[in-house]
Amino acid sequence: MFRYTIRRLLFAIPTLLVISFIIFALLDLAPGDPTSQLPINIPAEVRQKIREALGLGEPFYVRYGLWMQQFFVNEPLNILEQWFGVTIGDSENRLRVLSWSTRSPVVDLIVERMPQTLWVVGMAYVVGIAIALPVGVISAYRQYSIFDQAGTFITMIGFSIPPFFSGVLVIVIFSVNLGWFPSIYDTTHVVTDWDSFLKQINQMILPVMVLALQITAQLTRFMRASMLDNLNQDYVRTARAKGMSEQAVVLLHVLRNSMIPVITVIALAVPSIFGGAIITEQIFKVNGIGALLIGGIEAGDLPLVQTLTFIFAVLIVLFNLVADILYGILDPRIRYD
């Protein structure tokens, strides 16, 4: 297992290098211009000057090399310096990956956005999982019962209604008409005591509700299908024949076996927690990672988009590995070595 992990990790390095090149090249070749959002009456010569000040005058390979150096050398060094409070080399003049629209380090922007994304999107996953697992189990155990039918109906709604509709719908109901929850997420809010914690919960309810509906829908279907697969297996009949209680059969034997594929799905979904929720964040103005990415794309802010996309790629490669390893740990039949 350990050797397998090391081998996979080593193999991830060339994979990521190829991905980084593809991302950089694709985004670089894509049409778009960082000065396109400027007022139209700014003359072309000035735009050219701005582009040159952003480093766009350099040829492609120079910019790629520079970005690689900034991302793989300068940024990690900077993180080390911040963690340990030391100075390594010429840190004053070390160039970091700078966003074009804000002229500030991209990594700082990401760090600033991370809390609200983890709070909202992460919480939506927690809520979604907490609802989906029991609902999936009961739906499968009582297949075709009223509970199962109702569950299927609701999950189908969750599947088919996009967040740009459900988000605005809950705002109209709960913010405009009832006035219970805010429609705008306050990113400056700091939790210090019980009251401010309640306020935080209050402003999270709507976005979490919209996101959790979707997550629940997907996971419930998955959990139900996996349970159904296992409930018809021979070992279940054996367990029942041994005279085990239904509770022990379902919760000890069937559930544990059914969880294996579900846990893989959950692990593979973790990168998308960090990726944020582009549409839902936009609707509730959560301004997390998703909003950062879409704003960067609109503004033609290449360093920001390249860096974010590449971080997503790293997370996806990493969590694929985690899912594979978890699979090995959970299922004794699977051995990699």
Partner: peptide
């Protein structure tokens, strides 16, 4: 505050009063 779209911005002033 920034973010969202024009319609939501209008709503936050004219309808919810936030």
């Amino acid at each position: 505050k920034g973010g969202g779209d024009a319609a939501a911005a209008a709503r936050s002033v004219l309808e919810t009063g936030e």
